[in-house]
Amino acid sequence: MPQVDNLTLEKELREIIAKIVEIEPDKITLEAKFVEDLGMDSMMALEILAAMEKKYRIQIPEEKLNMLRSLKDAVKLTREYL
């Protein structure tokens, strides 16, 4: 897969998250906490993880699910497995 820059990654992940959580993309700041600020639950986080894997053709271990707490974490986690 061609190298994706951080800004593109952030934009694409924001769109993925917005679709799953059903909120406006601009509410998903880099620092916004998924649970506390965006009302997400653990199964939505699992769907986001699955969507990240599908979009970037990567495999992220289940244990990493707990680290997925914000868009910033999602960017970092995706980058780690790209």
């Binding site: 653990s42 199964m43 699992l46 769907e47 993880l49 699955a50 894997e53 599908k54 289940e62 699910l65």
Partner: peptide
């Protein structure tokens, strides 16, 4: 399977 874990699956 799209994603399978111990807490559930997609």
């Amino acid at each position: 399977t799209i994603k399978m874990t111990r807490i559930g699956g997609v």
